[in-house]
Design a protein around this nucleic acid. Structure first.
Lengths: 340, 340
DNA sequence: ACTGGCACTCTGTCGACTGGAGTGCCAACC
DNA sequence: GGTTGGCACTCCAGTCGACAGAGTGCCAGT
């Protein structure tokens, strides 16, 4: 049996009411709050069908209905109208992001903004090194056997690492190294660098080869292997809104999951489809987050995507509003990055 | 009336039992679990005195006693024996910190370690710029009108900032700037730099003065004014241990406080007395943390202190164990920094 | 100064009861 | 056939009283 328009309308009403009140919604209050044009009895029949199809369920007999994950999914896919941001929100975004002084600052401001606007937990990934190009590599002599390698990426990220050299290297040689490294690597996508780095070692005069090899290995480690993704998190206090009712009793598993960078990356990473992604309840594969939903999207200057951002909240979440906000913030951040 | 030895012993027993069981402790179970050598009735008399003095209280008539903040304070100051770390813990610390590859890594590992060992929320402050010296300043040309300023501190911290120049500056001039800036500032305490930076501008040839002034202002901002303290946080999930019993019902205020860097800095900063500090309940002035205790200490290479670290948990906390762990971790981190 | 005994108080729990909300079903209606 | 009003049923949440258990304070005795 397929769902006719009114049944879908009933589902929408249930989702909207439940999100707002956090209480199972019954047939009577539904017809009172929405103009469905039918009686409670009819709505009850529709509800029975919706329940049979798995979109809603009853916590117990003779309680109202609550949307299931599948119900939210249907709502998000087919029923939710885009909710445009209020001018106040737009202004908040602009005001918040203006005056950011460096990448760290941008990321921190963004994550706080996102947490504040959505009133959920926000996560922002730093621009991924894998999607960056080398803008410049700097070698700073710290002592005769130590140099600091500083990599500046076009996305604004700066990574540094200390290199212990096998033998003392005079300052002039460092200058030479720096020139050679930059000639080869500057402007290249980080993903493309490994063979080039190998080439650097091969092209090296035997005298300085040991030094270069050492440098190269740190380079590779920094740029590719450790491929350090970084992220910022904010708004964990928002998890406590709505009592302990969401998240079935304890925040524990959620807080634990939020401490694992790997998990967070899985949530907001995978940026392929460039569109906003919504993962509802079970859909994120992580056990600890069965009762949570994640709304995420990619961001970056222009049409390219360099990182992800998103928010996490209870499945009982204002999806249209959250989606709109996440998108808007991502676009603003992208514009900000483009200005560099 | 002063407290004789047995009364103190009773207080200690109460604290220890309450910390362990999280339940008000009564006179009978006290004499059963500890060798006090007196009867419950006697203990009750002692308890009455302790209560009158404000060290313990009854949640309600005919419940057992619970330590007050003052009780914990007395316990920490006079009653707790140092609890040496187990060899397993020592090994854990070493294993955890070994192989840290840069400062970020050290800080992150430390904060996780601390959270894990104490099973509380851990906070680690990055080495404070105010207590660092300039090791090297690097100027990296990004375009003709933009250079990136990279400051490397002796504590391992690296700060970078983009400088927008008022006019194009050729590469040679940048080299010259770099030399001049380093000659003047390298090796100086950051706190001492402001007059030196001013001197740099004054000594400048009129031709490059505008550029230098611009650089100087960013320098000052980066090094001193913004005086960016950074921190790392871990273990928030530990707040949920012991149900919602600690923290009087909601984690909300605690989580909120933990999001404020300023508050965290207040908690673990103020490193003057170089000894471990314990702030119990009301003693940290922050309203949101009335039901929390903080154990913090400074760390740094050798005897100097460059930053703070600590843990936060319910007032009902294993103080001796926590204090020992915090101290040990701080010492290990200090040693690690000294090796650089 | 300590102890045993005793009466008292308060909590937490259990069962019983009740009012309310919501449903499912059915017969009637358009 | 879809819709509706009516009705019996179920289940939850809250209230009440009773009760066991734990703990105290006090007092008289050692």
């Amino acid at each position: 049996m397929s769902l006719d328009d009114r049944k879908l309308e009933v589902l929408r009403a249930i989702v909207e009411d439940y999100v707002e009140t956090q209480e199972p919604v019954g047939s009577k209050s539904l017809v009172e709050r929405h103009q469905l044009g039918v009686s409670p009895a009819t709505v009850r029949n529709d509800m029975a069908v919706l329940e049979e199809e798995g979109y809603i369920r009853q916590p117990h007999t003779s309680a109202g209905r609550v949307p299931t994950d599948a119900g939210y999914r249907l709502f998000v896919d087919r029923l939710s109208r885009v909710k445009p941001l209020s001018p106040a929100e737009r202004r908040a975004i602009e005001r918040f992001l203006i005056g950011a002084v460096d990448l760290d600052d941008v990321v921190h401001r963004t994550v706080r903004l996102l947490a504040q606007l959505t009133r959920q937990v926000a996560v922002v990934q730093y621009p991924s090194l894998a999607r960056s190009s080398v803008r410049h590599l700097e070698l700073v002599p710290i002592s005769t056997t130590r140099i600091m390698l500083v990599m500046i990426a076009d996305t604004g990220r700066v990574e540094q690492r200390l290199v212990e050299l096998p033998q003392p290297v005079p300052a002039d040689d460092v200058t030479d190294l720096r020139r050679r490294v930059n000639e080869k690597l500057a402007g290249q996508k980080l993903a493309d660098t490994p063979p080039l780095v190998q080439g650097l070692v091969d092209d090296c005069a035997p005298g300085s080869r040991a030094t270069m090899a050492c440098l190269a290995s740190v380079l590779l480690e920094t740029l590719v292997e450790r491929s350090e993704e970084r992220l910022a998190l904010a708004g964990t206090a928002n998890l406590t809104r709505g009592g302990v009712l969401d998240f079935q009793g304890t925040l524990r598993p959620v807080l634990e999951a939020l401490e694992e960078e790997v998990i967070l990356l899985k949530l907001i990473g995978d940026l392929e489809p460039s569109t906003t992604r919504v993962r509802i309840g079970d859909e994120n594969q992580i056990d600890n987050l069965r009762s949570a939903s994640v709304v995420s999207t990619g961001y970056g200057p222009g049409a390219t995507i360099v990182g992800g951002l998103g928010v996490l909240g209870p499945t009982r979440m204002d999806y249209p509003g959250t989606i709109a906000t996440v998108r808007a913030v991502a676009r603003y951040v992208g514009d900000l990055l483009a200005q560099n």
